[in-house]
Design a protein around this nucleic acid. Sequence first.
DNA 1: ATCTCCCGCCATATG
DNA 2: CATATGGCGGGAGAT
Length: 824
Amino acid sequence: LKTPLKQGATSQLVLTERQSDCQPLTTPPKPKDAPAADPWTPTSNLKMLISAASPEIRSREQRKQLSDSSTEVLQTKHCLQEHLLGDEYEKSQPSRKEKSLGLLCHKFLARYPDYPSAAQKSYICLDEVTEELHVERRRIYDIVNVLESLHMVSRLARNRYIWHGRHNLPQTLQALKKVGEDNKYIQQIQMIKKREYEREFDPDSERSEEMASSLGSSEQSEMPFVELPGVEFRAASVNGRKYKSLRVMSQKFVMLFLVSTPQIVSLEVAAKILIGEDQLEDLDKSKFKTKIRRLYDIANVLSSLKLIKKVHVTEERGRKPAFKWTGPEVLPNIQDTKLEATSTTCSPPTSESVPSKEHCSKNLFPSKGKQNFTRHSSLIKLVKSIENDRRKIQSAPTSPVKISTINNLSGHSFLHEGIKIRLGFFVCLFFFYLRTAEEMQMKCALSSPEAVPKPEPSQQPTPSQPLGVSPASHSSVSPVILPHPHSGVSYAIYLHPSQAHTVTTYSPGFMLQPLPCANVTGIKSNNLKVLNKITTEEGDNQIATAEPAKPLAAEETPEVKSETSSQRCLKRSQALQENNLIKRHRSDEESLGTSSTFFPSGYLIPLTHCTHGNKADCSSKDKAGMCSLQHPTYSSPVTGVIPMTASELKTVNIPAFHITPLNIMLSPNSIAAAPVLGNSCLHSSNSSSAQNPSSSTLNFMLQHIGLIPAGVQVPANPVLQHVPVSSQAENTSHSSGNTKVQEGKVRRNILYLEGEVQCSNSFTAGKPSAPKEPQEPQAVTENFFRTPGGPNSGSSPSANSDGTERTSQGTLYIPQRKLEVSED
DNA sequence: ATCTCCCGCCATATG
DNA sequence: CATATGGCGGGAGAT
């Protein structure tokens, strides 16, 4: 019974292998009824199903099969359908799993092509389906409802649906993402997490009202079903004003994935948000439970569609079920702005034509509403709320930038808006930047190796981006972490890309480094909208948070391995070095199957790079293992910090951060300490003298933003002295990691440092949050410095604990929240 | 015990 | 009114 072992690897391969051909299962003629060659065994049926099922399921089933078959035989169950095969007594009653919605969904999907051609337009008759699949109608509804939410099918009439396949998926996801953004889901997620944290560490102080007010008020009123032009529900009748909870819930669920940066959403959070992000800690257990049940239903279908996959996130609290988005990346709608003006030549609805973005947008924000859909009213509602939102944004005194402007921004332009730009904005930009970088990374990875830009520190991003990689603009920013003088909390400032760029290119030692920075840094102007959104939040005293860089670690190991070395190189270079750390760690962890690690999160962008001196070390290593999967790159153009002592800041009169309408503070949830410090090079850079790039950059930034007068200079004298995780640590842990390999179950413990930068006046305002923060978390924090290899393996000297101390010393770090994700 | 989530009652919506 | 839909939550299999 070898199964267990390969599962991991094989499933992955199969995963890719399979997928295009989904029509195998010809027809319904109950294939199971005809026990073909296989002597009817309790599992034959299962086998068949499995073949059509996803690899994951297959392997899972196989595994299970082995263990169960024997027992199953024992439980002589009677096949309901005598005609089936009288001989086999047991059979059907397939362990619950065989009836799972997921499997059923697979069977369902197998009936239709992913991308049906206009010719093969297929209709779905529920009666047939239920009969063929041998399921209760009720179950089919579950599936269809979710598919509907993705516009993969749409109802024509009673009992009748039309199959669209995945043609509409891109548009749908895009639309959902947008709505999700407009719905402030990111903030909501953060809020929930925060609340959670507070409950944990500070049960007494109940300041959940803030949220209630902030969120509750907003148009939390139910968001209507998001439609897609050309796929909208036909017949007003059919489409009635029913609540369509499952559909809407499904959409919201998907939205959560699309908007959150690590595209991982835990059921708990999702449930809470979907329940009505609203107020009052409705400890309504039952309601919560129900929601969870529904989410599982939805998740099963989405999983079958391979849009998500199950994982587990392990936080301080414990292991929680969650799902990770594995669907296509959703690019922001580039033409949002034009949309409204565009008088579209809408193709007739049900037509095969793939709805255009214009349509989509129009649907979402029908300034010129559609005229005859029952849903109209709800849409109007949505539109209104959104428009209101926009209006608020535009008029809000605190809003630094207008959406309209933002949309067309590029490069510095937004800095010249003449409006005060607040830190928050940069924070947002930063995260957005990270995100973008990620995307770029992915795209680049796809492009041919040749396409890889040369290490030339050119100012302009190489315009030679195949595959339509969006041209990098100067609009990206790099953050600088500043220690907070008193609260022990660090602040982050994000520098303008152009500056960062300069800095980055600065170190010639890293051949590939410049590239990622130069090319990945770009932010598509249209993406800025998101930022604006967040910024507004801040203005409202709400908490604006950003998730850490997308979990680079999320990449499948197998995937990585299959990459060409060149791709790997590029990827690596672009993927913030921590990526490597993560990978390494993960692999380590896979072996160990336990322990948690911590690594640079990419939160901190190093304005300071390795001095040439150090670089020697680093670069040499780098060169050697540049393309080696093994080689850990610790320095990253995006990872690092600009160390500054509090005193220094004071000196500069950056009463900081008072200047900003909002205070950026690290959330209490954040615990991990500067993963960033993984950059061993930082060490030397510290000693390096005075005016280093970061310094000038910082000044530029501050001045630019108006935080400090033009003349003032902020001495950016690195004081960083801690290197929590060093390459050494890495190596150590790595080696130890080879010890044993868990068979059967490949488990990955990925540690996602989910730092949270929060912007909130209310919080900083005399709230105990800041002060106590450093303490409680500490205990937990310790784990962060524990490398798989062992407590000492980490070269991280003082790394250990105490984020406080570090702070006091001026070391910069961003507390992070521990988050492990394991998949099976 | 907890995680999953199937099953099917029954309120509603449809036609 | 008969059905088609689909909200909901008990409770049992899977882990």
